[in-house]
Computed example of a mutant assay.
Amino acid sequence: MKNRVLSVDIFRGMTIVLMILVNTPGTWSNVYAPLLHAKWHGYTPTDLVFPFFLFIVGTSIALAYQNKTSGTSVYNKIAIRSLKLIGLGLFLGAFTITFPFFKDFAEIRFPGVLQRIGVVFFFAAILFINLNWKKLIWVAAILLIGYWLLMVFVPVEGVASTLERAPNNLANYVDVHIFGTHNYKPDYDPEGLLSTIPAIVSSILGIFTGLILTSKHDKKTTLLFGIGGSMLLVGHLWDFIFPINKALWTSSFVLVTAGWANIVLALIYFLTDVKKIKLGSIFKYAGANAITVYFLSSFITKLFYTIKVDEDTSLHGWIFNKIYVHDFMTMELSSLLYGLSVVSFYCLLAYVLYKRRIFIKV
């Protein structure tokens, strides 16, 4: 990737590390509140992690495709990468350790994190190659406003729409009628079909940041802080009529999370690219093989939960209870230490891959 920006690599790696941390506590029964998702409306630090990654996908698109023009070969590469991501996500959802190594078809969840990344990458990349930044602003605005109007004003089978977990929540209604049993839960899917529309905007907003970082603007840090603060303000104002909600990926959620992403990235950019302070190299290593590290962590975690040490105890539970649970510390701390140990392992793996110049592109 030409015109590589160190802060982008660090931000991407930091996001992947946080994704692993929040996904692998020692026990889900004892987790510090900031490391859990909001129960429904509102957001916690954990709710920022996935939109941060979609945001940085957009930033990376701006860096990687800035000199590309539309054409069959470019479209093919974009489509193949998208299909790989979707395929990896479906594999994670379908795999089981018992023969024939895949769940029954009715039990396989179709949506998922990697699937959403693949779909969002595809549309964001195609839009970036074909539209200038002014048209992209219009696309982003139309998608966010259109999603708000759909979710609030379109009735479901004659019943007024709701933004709660209910049958007349339009996003849930669409998912249930298209995917049937292939959802995360019967009453909502955090990576559902309709909510992928505003998720594309999360990536488009990252594209704008990528364009700023590669521009000749002499006050990039100030500009990013200003844009981030403005998005936070608008997002929180929109929250009054369209609540901030990760599960529904509401338009207010898109703006608030992109606002925080700009602010965090601006800070990292100022320290690393402007002031040349050597900071966060371990995150850079993770960022170089981000999807690989995330996929391995998800796959191995699934194995640890599936493999049984005895009839009632998984390998994950056995390791946690034997090594991390002690009378002199709280269960929340034990759970966090387990997660940090997992993160440390994948940071070490990422470091080894980086030093050996092994970069697995998906």
Rank of each mutant, 00 (worst) to 15 (best):
I207H: 11
E191G: 02
F153V: 09
L149V: 15
P111F: 02
P100W: 13
V201N: 12
N172M: 07
K185V: 06
N168E: 13
S203D: 12
I126P: 00
R109Q: 08
F95V: 15
F105D: 06
V174W: 07
V113I: 15
N168T: 09
P111N: 05
G93M: 05
I97R: 02
F102W: 14
I108T: 08
R116K: 03
L144R: 01
V120T: 11
K135S: 09
T96D: 13
S161K: 07
V159Y: 07
L144F: 01
S202Y: 01
K135H: 07
L114M: 14
S161N: 15
P167D: 07
G206D: 14
I145W: 08
K135F: 04
L205M: 15
F208T: 12
V159Q: 13
K185S: 14
S203K: 09
Y188T: 08
D175V: 03
E191D: 09
A160Q: 12
F99G: 05
R109G: 01
S203A: 15
Y184V: 07
W133N: 11
L163N: 09
N183W: 00
F101K: 11
I137N: 05
V156A: 12
G118S: 04
P198F: 07
T98F: 13
I204Q: 11
G93T: 06
H177F: 06
A140E: 05
L193Q: 07
H177Y: 08
V201S: 13
R109I: 02
L205W: 09
A124S: 14
F101R: 11
V120F: 04
F101E: 10
E191P: 03
I204A: 13
L114S: 10
T181D: 04
F153W: 14
F128M: 03
I137M: 06
W133I: 11
A141W: 00
V113L: 09
I97Q: 03
K134A: 05
F179W: 09
V139Y: 01
F128T: 02
K135D: 02
A141V: 12
W133D: 11
F102R: 08
